[in-house]
Amino acid sequence: MSSVIVAGLVSGSIYALIASGLSLVWGALGVFNFAHGALLMAGAFVAWFVSDPAGLDLGLTAGVLTSMIFMIAAGGVLYVLLVRPWLGKPAAELTVIMTTVAGAMFLENLALYTFGARLKALDQVVTGTVSVAGTAMQAQNLLVIVLAPVLLGGLALFLKLSKHGLAIRAIAQNDEAARLLGIRIERTYFLTFAVSALLAGVAGVMIGGLFNITPSMGSDPLLRAFLVVVFGGLGSLPGTVIAAYLIGLIEAASSYYIGIYWTPVVLFSVLILVLLVRPNGLLGRAP
């Protein structure tokens, strides 16, 4: 029972980080980034390459830091190359799905070309097991469970208190009024993508420390994040986070009690149920 909860919280934490980035971009720009999973993978590979003895061997701290800086840049570049040219054009929504799918294809094959298909893993930030409330768990799991809410809290504060965080929300809610306050739309979009990519990078490093690093490691979490944002309602950050933990826990429980192969069926059935009752997600707004 307690191991199910731990597993659920770990997945939920990772899904929350991934999905909140997707949701943020959707809220501000009205486009959906299908390369989000590939960004996550790229973050994990950069951290691995910088830290691992087979790469630059500079240690985990350097690896993680480099990865974070890389992610900020990567998010911005992705926006400039794959999103900006189509914003405001007809069918931007669909075209950006396509360009970001192509971006994902590019990044995954680049990783495959550069690093090969062999499984890699990041060193764990913390090792050993700890016991919390009578439950033994890997220290790395505990780190993920604690770190994710801290980061998500940080994101919430950034969006509520900082000048540029408020600007991201303002654009999402009323972009003409935002322009009339002098908010630089372009720069704010860039920033939104950078923040979103940074969150994906953190998730990538977490997954890399717990599981394996492969060129396609991003696609499963991304598809789970799709479920999360549909559950939670795109653009609603609290909804997204709640849905992420719910899905993490449902997934863990169904893998444990019903069997891992039936988990997708369980998730999909829950999704259908939710959508039949609330077509805009659990906490979503009508468009």
Partner: peptide, 29 residues
């Protein structure tokens, strides 16, 4: 805006999901 001209649009819906305080803070962008 940086030059100092501010245009308050007609029947502005403002930012529906921001608090008055947040909207005012953002006004000082």
């Amino acid at each position: 805006v940086e030059a100092g001209i501010i245009h308050v649009a007609q029947a502005s819906a403002l930012f529906p999901r921001m608090t008055v305080f947040e909207a005012l803070t953002l006004g000082a962008y």
